[in-house]
Amino acid sequence: MSQIIDTYGLILVKAMGQTLLLALLGLFFGCLLGIVFGLASVFNSKISKAISAIYVNLIRGVPMIVLAFFVFYGIPYGLRTILGVKYTFTALQAGTICLALNCGAYMAEIIRAGIQSIDPGQMEAARSLGLTYWRSMFRVVLPQAIKNMIPSIVNQFIITLKDTSILSVIGFPELVNKAQNVISKTFKSFEIWAIVGLMYLVVILILQQVAKALERRLNRGK
């Protein structure tokens, strides 16, 4: 066991670094998408609601592994054969796109539900004083909604972090992908998968603690 760690420990730790990099990129762009589409789904316009619904349903209805294959293999092939354009994504680019699209759809739902959980009277009172829709949203509704959303957002962060493992299929050198490489050399699948599992667990437990501290901070003064 210690021999495995001595020889391959650094590779796995570096791979965890790649996992975290991909997760952070996916979460960052996913949050942006989630905010845009989440707000679009509560905004009083049929068009913005429809666009948001299409995005959310499309992404939720397709497994991420299919999305990954489609973005990484399908789109470049389509570009080449249909449009005659030569373009390929790196695994990191394709991975970020998939993760962000996926995370964004679920975040949009969390944000929509969070905003809708706030009594419409809050918005009405702010509007009745002369505040615009967006000022009312940012000063009154969202600060309350975010508090309710935190547990679901943390949950989504964890899911997105774990979902990076799916992107091993397009060859992104994250933890699962690297672990498979190591196993193909050592055949120590029991030890390696146990170590990999433990590594995910530790990172996620740390993330949870950070989230708890954040939640406590937000609930202070109430």
Partner: peptide, 16 residues
């Protein structure tokens, strides 16, 4: 609306 105040049945004070 800046010149028309409104008071609601359920108060609607900003809870945050």
């Amino acid at each position: 609306r800046e010149n028309v105040g409104m008071v609601f049945q359920h108060f609607n004070l900003f809870n945050n």
